[in-house]
């Protein structure tokens, strides 16, 4: 099977977030960047498992500048066969999805895996957009996938439960926790990743319809009000009269 996995780069979860240029841009200084966990731990690993069981290739694709190459190499170290970087800033979900679809449209992928969302912008838009541009079925928030012949049975998270779906290849899938087990790249993988191809291709023209013009941090919380553990009536009273939540 010919598989494509879309990977994005995000700040490490514990990074201190700050902004620059009058709060119009993210400040990358001193921030460590990682592969978006949903893409790395679940989408990529499940694609590799599928390749290992039925044969084929796994390509990782990123829309981003050359500074993303380290994260892309990590995808190769974990086991992808080759990589593609579409050379442009990922300015919006609309832009990214269009670029991915334009690249993938005539390549004949059997499945395209993405993460359910990026942990920085928490968009959850790119996957279904890619599916629409390519006119493919889409299964979101997949936490388990079994493949038999040309059909996948997918368990997906829904509000207060799970749903089981069947879909024939080719399709687009977004990965949630549980779809696979995280893999740590080993020394051999890291050595080999240096020799695997990373093809850089130009972006296609697209009028970007969405732009972040300003960032703001939430107002800092006032200090916690401590309540005597013996006096829970006081807590109830505060929740009712002060916080007005019960």
């Amino acid at each position: 099977m010919k598989l494509l996995v879309c990977i994005s780069q995000t700040p490490d979860t514990t990074a201190n977030i700050s902004f620059k240029d009058n709060d119009t841009a993210f400040n990358p200084d001193g921030v460590q960047f990682i592969m978006n966990p949903y893409d790395e731990w679940y989408a990529l690993v499940r694609a590799l498992e599928l390749k290992e069981s039925v044969g084929g290739t796994v390509t990782v694709l990123n829309v981003g500048p050359a500074t993303n190459d380290a994260v892309i190499r990590k995808g190769l170290a974990i086991g992808a066969d080759d990589a593609v970087r579409i050379d442009a800033e990922a300015v919006s979900a609309d832009f990214v999805a269009f670029q991915i679809a334009e690249y993938a449209k005539d390549k004949g992928y059997d499945a395209i895996f993405l993460g359910k969302e990026t942990i920085d912008y928490n968009g959850a838009i790119v996957p279904s957009m890619v599916a629409e541009y390519l006119d493919l079925p889409f299964v979101s928030l997949a936490q388990q996938m079994d493949v038999e012949g040309n059909t996948a049975t997918v368990k997906r998270d829904i509000e207060g439960g799970v749903e089981v779906l069947k879909v024939d290849f080719p399709f687009v899938l977004s990965a949630a926790k549980g779809l696979a087990e995280q893999r740590i790249p080993n020394m051999k993988g890291i050595m080999m990743s240096r020799r695997k191809p990373l093809n850089v291709v130009p972006a296609v023209d697209f009028t970007n319809p969405v732009e972040v013009i300003h960032f703001e941090k939430p107002a800092p919380k006032s200090a916690v009000k401590l309540i005597d553990p013996e006096n829970m009536d006081e807590l109830v009273n505060l929740l009712h009269n002060e916080a007005k939540v019960i």
């Binding site: 977030i17 912008y121 319809p209 732009e211 013009i213 300003h214 939430p218």
Partner: peptide, 14 residues
């Protein structure tokens, strides 16, 4: 955005 650590104002031009 950033898992609740900030807000982003998005301008939509379409």
């Amino acid at each position: 955005v950033f898992s609740g650590k900030a807000f982003a104002d998005n301008k939509i031009t379409s």
